[in-house]
Computed example of a mutant assay.
Amino acid sequence: MSSNTITDTNFNFPNQKSVYKGKVREVYALEDDVLVMIATDRLSAFDVVMPKGIPFKGQILNQIATKMMAATEDIVPNWLSATPDPNVAVGAACEPFMVEMVIRGYMSGHAAREYKAGQRMLCGVPMPEGMQENDKFPEPIITPATKAEQGDHDEDISKEDILKRGIVSVEDYGVLEKYTKALFQRGTEIAAERGLILVDTKYEFGKTKDGKIVLIDEIHTPDSSRYFYADGYEVRQDRGEAQKQLSKEFVRQWLIANNFQGLEGQNVPYMSDEYIESVSERYIELYENITGETFEKADISNIQERIENNVLEYLKS
């Protein structure tokens, strides 16, 4: 089944102007400020794209993101206008802000690694003394990252530096902060309904031609967010045990255990078909837990052809 994945696209849509290939998504810019965003089955960890695709991963990410955009559009406007195919989102072209708005409700992942290394400040935000990994912060903290050009690592940056370097204006940053907190609050509520805890996540924003700030890219997916199971969270914390989590972290942990963290001189470990299959199953489990719906597998006999036909059909209408 691993052969039935989409890891690269080369479409030529009507009125196409340019193509941008990110780590996971490929964005086709058409005339009239229309963007066609295709979620591939590529898997990226430690800012490195893995050699094999994960069956259904693109569909899962795209469908979670579009469902979450629909569930938050009453509080924050977004770029999305249609989803003509399980792997495709279509919307308005925006000028992206070159920062990712990372927000953390709990001390996990990167924050915990920094904390263990003795840091008590992250992106200019203080972290209280005496915390243990996966403890809840008194208040969610915003720890932005600069959006890297292709291939480079995203880097932590403070609000002060963002404003000082003129990456975002003071006025716009105020809006990004407000939207980030509102989205995280809504995401936390949605997660709670599913028996989950939204631990941390990142949001990306852009500006439309008429100057409106909108949410772009993905939202509340397992690639951009970390979730814990709420059931047993306190008990595990009290015992100092690892939390049961729903995110891409299981892939990172597997890579770390196989001596890979994206550092120079390290090679991506071999991923067997069985392992790829198990990652696909985990992503389906993530989808069903996050959305509360049964995952319906799209036809993957010829994904390229399916996407092309669906997009062309949409563009005609």
Rank of each mutant, 00 (worst) to 15 (best):
Q132C: 11
A230S: 12
K202G: 05
M101C: 11
V268G: 04
A257D: 14
G118A: 08
I64T: 01
P96V: 04
K159H: 10
R25N: 02
L30Y: 08
Y227V: 02
Y287H: 04
A112Q: 07
L315P: 00
T5W: 05
E274P: 06
N62S: 11
G22D: 02
D200P: 00
E139F: 15
A111N: 05
T208F: 02
G91T: 04
H110T: 15
E31F: 09
K147D: 01
D152W: 13
Q132Y: 11
K159M: 07
E160M: 12
R239N: 15
C94F: 01
P84E: 05
G232I: 12
F13A: 08
P140I: 01
P138A: 11
F11P: 00
S44F: 05
T7V: 14
Y270P: 11
V214W: 07
L215H: 06
I162G: 01
P128T: 10
G109T: 06
M68S: 07
E308K: 05
F260Y: 11
E264V: 14
M107P: 07
D217K: 01
I6P: 02
P126K: 14
G105I: 04
K209H: 09
S169K: 14
K248Q: 03
E218R: 00
A230Y: 13
S44C: 07
V88W: 00
R252K: 10
K297Y: 10
F228Y: 12
I142V: 11
T9M: 08
D33H: 13
G195K: 07
V19H: 06
I162V: 13
Y314K: 08
M98Q: 14
K159C: 10
G174T: 09
G240D: 08
R282V: 03
P77Q: 03
K147R: 12
V90Y: 02
V102N: 03
L246W: 03
V48K: 09
R282F: 09
P86I: 01
S3T: 15
I190M: 09
R104V: 08
S272C: 09
F228G: 00
N258M: 11
M101S: 09
S44G: 07
H153Y: 06
I54P: 00
E26P: 06
L183Y: 01
I219G: 02
T7P: 07
N302F: 10
S169F: 10
T188G: 07
K147E: 01
N267W: 09
R120I: 09
S317P: 05
N10F: 13
R282Q: 12
Y203I: 06
P14L: 14
N12F: 13
K202Y: 04
I157F: 04
I103P: 00
D200G: 04
C94R: 06
E234P: 08
D41H: 03
I103H: 00
P128I: 13
M121T: 10
